[in-house]
Every structure is written in C-alpha cells, then in structure tokens.
C-alpha cells in the first residue's frame, strides 16, 4: 500500500483551495498534514476519500490513479476516513454506527463480531455505550466512535481529520496513544492536525500546508525542533 498525491488541484467554484500539492504516504507510516485554519487539510482528505472532485493531478493508490473511482467504492479499496467534527450518525446507536462502518464489506456478517471486539478493545467506553444514541455521546466519545467506525471497514489507510479537535488534554493524549496503537496493528495513517505538538510526536513524517501549498516536508522529529515551525505551529513551545 502506498498513497501518492501528485500535483493535486481542487476548486470550490472558482476558488482554488488546493494549489498543486504532492506528497506520499508509505505503507506502515503515520504521516501528518499540519496547517492553520483554511490551509486545505480537510479538502485534501475529502478529495482522497472522493467527497470532492479533483480538478487536476492524480491520487495514486498502489500506483493506480483512483481520482475517477466513485467515493463509495474507495472504501472497498481500503481507504477509510474519519470525518472532521466527528461526523457520526446522531440518531443511530453506537452499535448501529459501528455496523454502518462495515456497510460495504462483502464478509460483513462473518467479520462483524471480531471487529466489534477489536474496536471495543481499543475503546472500552464504546462498549458501555453500545445502545446509546450517537448524538448523546460526549465529544471525546464521539471522536472514539468516528475512529472506531472507520476501522470497521478494515482500512489499509486511515484518514483522520483533526481527531483532537475540542478534546480535553487528557483525552487528546489518549486518542493519540490509540492512533499509534492502530498504526502498530498495520494500518497506514494520514493524520490531519492543528495540534502539531502531539501529531509530530506520533508521526513518522510531516508535511506543512499553507493556503493550499505544501511548504515543507520533513521527518516529524526534525520539525519538532525546527525554530520556524515551533514559532508558527507550536506557539512558544511551552507545551
């Protein structure tokens, strides 16, 4: 599995939100995409998962251009996105949400229990809340549900859009720990974050996105010590 974005451009009407970016996510990596509000992080993920159309450029998945594959079929290929702002089904129970994550799997009946146990193993809280409506979960629980649900599709690559958004520090640490754990189980991860500190600690490599352009690529550990990056994305570094 290798995800390669080549010279990607994406428009909202006449506005160009992504202005020709290229980057690579190799098998087994955690790659993080860091950028300020409006940099185009969500747009990039939505384009990979197919919710937005490519204006030009390519999305290569194992060497094949998938930019014309319908969004709902990209899940079958092994691309699974956990949307920004949690994006769970509020009127469905936790269990039903998780089941939806397997909607398109051919072997969903056979895999269901095993994968539910896997998700409940990562997020025991979800098991306790299995019959509660998604909309009544706390923010952190909804985030767990969104991530857990995207795992139900047995993805090869997981697209995470700001999993730490709106969470308390302790919960953030928890979520990032689990992201590493998921990665260790063999899932490649493309992680979009504003919480650069945590993301850079967890990721192998990082790209910095500014108003639709990739302005920097480096090993995550190096960026943590880069003065310019510290200035722009890590505040004073007092974290």
């Amino acid at each position: 599995m290798r995800l390669e974005i080549k010279d990607l451009r994406v428009h909202y009407g006449k506005i160009e939100a992504i202005k020709g970016i290229s980057f690579v996510v190799n098998e087994g990596e955690i790659v993080t995409l860091i950028g300020a509000n409006g940099a185009g992080k969500t747009t990039t993920l939505k384009t990979i998962s197919g919710l937005r159309k490519v204006s030009s450029g390519q999305i290569l998945f194992d060497g094949e251009d998938i930019s014309n594959v319908p969004a709902h079929e990209r899940v079958d290929l092994g691309i699974s996105q956990s949307p920004e702002g949690r994006g769970i089904f509020p009127g469905m129970t936790v269990l039903e949400n998780l089941e939806m994550g397997k909607y398109n799997r051919k072997n969903r009946k056979i895999e269901m229990n095993e994968d539910l146990e896997m998700v409940y193993g990562l997020f025991p809280r979800l098991k306790e809340r299995a019959f509660q409506a998604g909309g009544t979960l706390s923010g952190g629980e909804q985030q767990m549900l969104a991530i857990g649900r995207s795992l139900m599709a047995r993805p090869k690559v997981l697209l995470l859009d700001e999993p730490s958004m709106g969470l308390a520090p302790q919960m953030i640490a928890n979520i990032f720990r689990i992201i590493t754990q998921i990665n260790k189980q063999g899932v490649t991860i493309l992680l979009v974050e504003q919480n650069a500190q945590q993301a850079l600690q967890r990721a192998h490599r990082a790209y910095i996105l500014e108003t639709g352009n990739v302005v920097k690529e480096a090993k995550a550990a190096d960026l943590l010590n880069d003065p310019a990056v510290r200035e722009a994305y890590l505040g004073t570094g007092a974290h």
Binding site: A71, V75, G91, M100, N104, A153
Partner: peptide, 24 residues
C-alpha cells in the same frame, strides 16, 4: 434491512453515508 439503514444514513448525513460506502 440494508436499504432502510442506507436511507437512514443518507437522511442523517449524506457525506458520511458516502464515506461508509453507501451508493447514495
């Protein structure tokens, strides 16, 4: 059955339904 689940998902959040692989 599945159609009911798909409709429910589409009603609650179309984009997320697509992400689940529902041919909306």
């Amino acid at each position: 059955r599945r159609p009911g689940r798909a409709w429910e998902a589409i009603r609650q959040d179309e984009d997320v339904a697509i992400l689940m692989g529902v041919p909306i």
